[in-house]
Design a protein around this nucleic acid. Structure first.
Lengths: 166, 166
DNA sequence: CTAAGTGCAAATGTTTTGCAGAATC
DNA sequence: GATTCTGCAAAACATTTGCACTTAG
């Protein structure tokens, strides 16, 4: 699901960036955490902990990582600024890349849950002014626009292209 | 903590509005739910389920409401459009009034957790355009600006108003 | 009457944690 | 060698749900 937002050229890989962060804290980049970073940055799709747990908990021998390690790493990756929580869906925190990808926000379909990314440069500017007016030091923001996506807007029983596979 | 946002004159009380909503669904406004609505709209502070549970679970004879009823009512109040989830703090959903109060967004201090409301009319307009461009039918939005509030920005040991506290 | 609501306790489901052994600097 | 990890199972929590009993309409 391409949304028209391109990726950004970054000097160092996510794994390297992560290692740098860990170093400043006297922490280590272990094999398990490397696997997690790799998996997380393998695609730009949004994801939640459970998905990683399924993918890596099932992975064969050398790539298996436990549930606990995944949760612990996600927390560190967030602190490191490599990922961020975008939303909460079905009682789960949903993450996305926050490194090597341009700033953007989301349209969230309340029916099918689809996340559509969009970029509007005027937003950060406006928010900066607002924050400033309140003596607030803005560090970031999270914006979710809820409603119905193009698909879900369409009246239900329209064109029966293929007889639905469910 | 007044934020410069005034309340809006509404034709009917929250309780009445709620009753109307329930009526359309063939549901009932019970004594318990009346108590909950009353408590929720008693002040405009943000709140979470636990706070209500403590206040109403402890309330004397005629005003005690159970944990389950509170959760069930919060869900209905949200569907009715009387309240909405503003944020999630400490693993709890935080609610606020969404009826009888002007549209606004929040600055959230990552240190002390303070929620500062602000209103910026240009936002909905911008979002409407963005949504439109994506064939998305916008129904609402949620915007949280994170950072440090004025208080928490202040360096700890700055101006020695009174001679040294070290 | 009878569908909806309530309270309770038990269940859910996600995320966190204590610990013992393993790995890293 | 000491400190930080990992994996496991158990714990912690917020929220939900099944059920028998009440109650509003």
């Amino acid at each position: 699901m391409e949304s028209g937002l391109g990726s950004v050229k970054v000097a160092v890989s996510p794994a390297e960036k992560y290692r740098e962060y860990l170093a400043t804290k006297g922490l280590r980049l272990t094999r398990e955490q490397s696997i997690i970073v790799e998996e997380v940055f393998a695609s730009h799709e949004h994801f939640d902990a459970e998905q990683l747990i399924v993918r890596l908990g099932r992975a064969d021998q050398g790539r298996r990582v436990s549930r606990s390690s995944i949760y612990r790493s996600l927390a560190k990756l967030e602190e490191a600024g490599l990922i961020r929580k975008v939303a909460r869906q079905e009682d789960r925190d949903v993450f996305e890349h926050d490194y090597g990808y341009p700033q953007h926000d989301h349209l969230i379909c309340r029916k099918c849950g689809t996340l559509i990314e969009f970029h509007q440069s005027s937003l950060p500017e406006i928010l900066a002014k607002v924050a400033d007016a309140h003596g607030f030091r803005m560090e970031g923001h999270r914006l979710e626009v809820s409603g119905l996506c193009k698909e879900c807007c369409r009246p239900p029983v329209s064109r029966p292209k293929k007889l639905n596979l469910l």
